[in-house]
Amino acid sequence: MAPSAPAAGPPQGPAFDAAAHARETARLIGLEIAPAHLPGVVANLQLAAQMAALVQGWPLDITDEPAPVFVAR
């Protein structure tokens, strides 16, 4: 469905802590991030969080399915 309301702001909830997310998620999936790479990773996660806020501001109906490409052959 198309959005029925004007652009919404970021979703409500605790602020996204990109540095903590990077450290903890990387540890949980066994991905080592060198200290020198961490600032860049955090900056990119912060940008992604801004994009996620935009995406989450689109009101979806329960029937809105994802758009992957899969064709049963």
């Binding site: 959005p3 860049g40 990119n44 992604a48 979806l60 809105d64």
Partner: peptide
């Protein structure tokens, strides 16, 4: 490199919402 590393850490919910929104955006 840093963008790929960050991509490996994205919450699944963000990505699934993006795919669902993409279908709705296409229709609009």
């Amino acid at each position: 490199r840093d963008r790929f590393l960050a991509g490996a850490l994205l919450p699944a919910g963000w990505v699934v919402q993006a795919q669902r929104m993409r279908a709705a955006y296409r229709a609009a």
